[in-house]
Design a protein around this nucleic acid. Structure first.
Length: 370
RNA sequence: GGAAGAGUUCCCGAGUGGCUAAAGGGAACAGACUGUAAAUCUGUCGUCUCUGACUUCGAUGGUUCGAAUCCAUCCUCUUCCA
């Protein structure tokens, strides 16, 4: 019996949407799936039990951040990340490739790897492809990401091409050292916003994709139509029997557009971050809870939601919590937003089963204004 | 009763003759956030017929080309002494 398996269960006829199953050592994931992000071994503000209840199937964590604190050795001593954080379902760890992008002022890239100034104490740290995989081995996540170079949108063709080449050569090194049968390596397609680079990257990346692969370097500042254009370029060339993971995408409209373009997996900090800053996704559009119009609104955050935040509390109360900076406010909205996206994926799956995904998109966008 | 000090735009608070509609906070209001250096950041925040005009710094009167800033009187508050 294989530790990892990927199966397509159902497909749309007039677009690339599909329902699949991804088997991992910690359970089976039904896709399309939204994966909440728990960078520092916690989805900010929520207990694993709460995540499980709201429907999360798999969560993300982060190699760079856990390497900096508390260190992978400590997590290994604790018995691995699952045990350390008390989450017994699948975990995907990002490699630190995104930090190459987001901590760009604090790092220096060479062919060997990336030198970071720790954002915590300024100390010099080094991550190579081999080290990124080594750390992820110690963490014990189910899906490990290749160490890639995620680039800014505006770097131009030549630099984008070099970053793509570097990502491919780093991928080869990751592949060679990733030997843990309980972990699956997902390679990452790069190529910035250039169609030919994207296609070349996909073609040269696929040989390394045993169960699935991901598309990185999108949703990093480029306009949405540009992202969709890249996905449209790639979609006809995906092998059917591999999971496709679009990294860092998570607004409701992008999730639907992604599924239509054949994406199976998504992750994003958006639902939890905007929650902490006071914004909720709802079935009637975005609700910025601090707005004065909600001062005496004693109805639920989302009128069509049965999550604990919506069942038990009012907009006026949550607004009050956010206004006085009480942590329960951020927690309740986080809970709701993740519940919302998880259930959006359920609705998407229903639409796929009925083969009405395009109709679903049209109705959804009209209803919510996203 | 005597002495010292203080009153600034919603609040706290800087400013002691022109560069001041008045620093800086806070509150309020609005917005952003997409593989988390984010419970963060940005904008607005006297009024209007708004690239200009008008009214504001306890009150009134005065000095000056010009006053939140100097002078006089009054009002209010704080602290100290009896």
């Amino acid at each position: 019996m294989e530790e990892f398996e990927f199966k397509v269960k159902q497909k749309c006829t007039n677009n690339y949407g599909r329902i699949c199953e991804l088997k991992t050592p910690h359970g089976v994931i039904e896709t399309p799936v939204f994966m909440p992000v728990g960078t520092q071994a916690t989805v900010k503000g929520l207990e694993p039990e709460e995540l499980e209840k709201l429907g999360a199937q798999i969560i993300l964590s982060n190699t760079y951040h856990l390497f900096i604190r508390p260190g992978e050795e400590l997590i290994a001593k604790a018995g691995g990340l699952h045990k350390f954080m008390h989450w017994n379902k699948p975990i995907l760890t990002d490699s630190g490739g995104f930090q190459v992008f987001s901590l760009s002022k604090l790092r220096k890239i060479t062919d060997e790897g990336v030198e970071f100034r720790s954002h915590v104490d300024g100390s010099l740290q080094f991550i190579s492809p081999e080290k990124a995989i080594g750390i992820q081995n110690k963490l014990g996540s189910d899906i490990v990401m290749a160490f890639d170079e995620c680039t800014h949108t505006d770097i131009g063709y030549e630099k984008a091409r070099l970053a793509m080449e570097r990502t491919l050569s780093w991928l080869d090194r990751c592949y060679k050292v990733q030997n843990n049968p309980k972990q699956m390596l997902f390679p990452i397609v790069q190529g910035n916003i250039f169609a030919d680079l994207r296609l070349e990257s996909l073609k040269r990346t696929l040989p390394y994709a045993k169960v699935g692969f991901s598309i990185g370097g999108l949703s990093v500042g480029e306009p949405k139509p540009k992202m969709y254009e890249m996905l449209d370029v790639l979609a006809p060339h995906y092998p059917e029997n591999k999971a496709r993971y679009l990294m860092g995408v998570g607004s409701p409209d992008c999730l639907i557009e992604g599924v239509i373009r054949g994406i199976d997996m998504f992750d994003c900090v958006l639902p939890t971050r905007i929650a902490r800053n006071g914004t909720a996704f709802t079935s009637e559009g975005k609700v910025i809870i601090k707005n004065a119009k909600y001062r005496e609104d004693f109805t639920a955050l989302d009128h069509n939601c049965d999550c604990p935040a919506c069942k038990n509390y009012t907009r006026a109360y949550i607004r009050h919590l956010m206004n006085v900076n009480e942590m329960l406010g951020a927690k309740l909205i986080s809970l709701h937003n993740l519940h919302y996206l998880t259930h959006l994926m359920e609705d998407i799956k229903s639409a796929i089963r009925e083969d009405k995904l395009l109709e679903f998109r049209e109705e959804y966008l009209k209803k919510t204004g996203y």
